[in-house]
Design a protein around this nucleic acid. Sequence first.
DNA 1: ACGCGTGCCTGTTGGC
DNA 2: TGCCAACAGGCACGCG
Length: 286
Amino acid sequence: MPELPEVETVARTLRPHVEGCAITGATLLRDSSLHPLSLRPEDLRGCVITGVSRRGKLLLLELDAAKAARADLRGATGLRLALHLRMTGRLMTYAAHTAPGPHTRCVFDLTDAQGQERRLFFDDVRAFGLMLAGTPQTMQLWSFWRELGPEPLELTDAAFSARLDSKNSAIKAVLLDQKVIAGVGNIYADESLFAAGIDPRRKAASLSAAQRSRLLRCLKDVLELSISQCGSSIRDYRDANGNVGAFQNSFAVYGRNGQACKACGRALEKIKVAGRATVYCPHCQK
DNA sequence: ACGCGTGCCTGTTGGC
DNA sequence: TGCCAACAGGCACGCG
């Protein structure tokens, strides 16, 4: 399931395939995969993909609208296509005219600077993923975007600590709250809490300054290590070249219920925290 | 205003 | 062996 490291890896691997490409056509194959605020994919015809970036778990295609087919979009600045892959979303390019698959939600026809044609598919088995194309003004109407918290890799101890102060819920629920920090999902929440030795049920505001600092450092370390290994592939995740990540081989707790703790050797336990499956070590995490 | 539970969606897994 | 409930889980939404 794509979280920050996986989306970062998709951005890095997709970039060489789509940067500089013009969108010559687009077809939406499932209405619910498009946010109601979004422009229609076909409205993006004539736009050029100038960059691929990431914000939290969102993948962003930056667009130059100078030659947009839609007259009222022509010259718009800051036009972007945001994609949330949720659990099973994938972005991959294929040869021109490749037929969409059973789970293809949107097709973009691209032409690069050399005139080479290809197709970009947004595939999503479970159809939880979402696309939103729009100007910065439109993006601001999207509450998820507007309220998205800071990037964890750029967060200071002081800013992180301040965001926990008012939180009376479990620290794990707080880590998963995209308004508090952007990009953390179930895997990296469990892994960072284990690394920091903190019980996932602890109330966020009850953590000491030292624990908060340690948790942020562990979170950054886990995210950076995962990015360096091209993310984690549990089942569905692939980068833009169809390759799996390797970080799943380094999990200390996620998916290891009943197995031996790598630190103390006792059995890891599985509980529910904030309605989500959580694996932790009762001995090492206090 | 905040925290919690539920629904969305489909393929895979595990128990009987 | 076959069937079906449970599960995976990010986020919107409704409730108290």
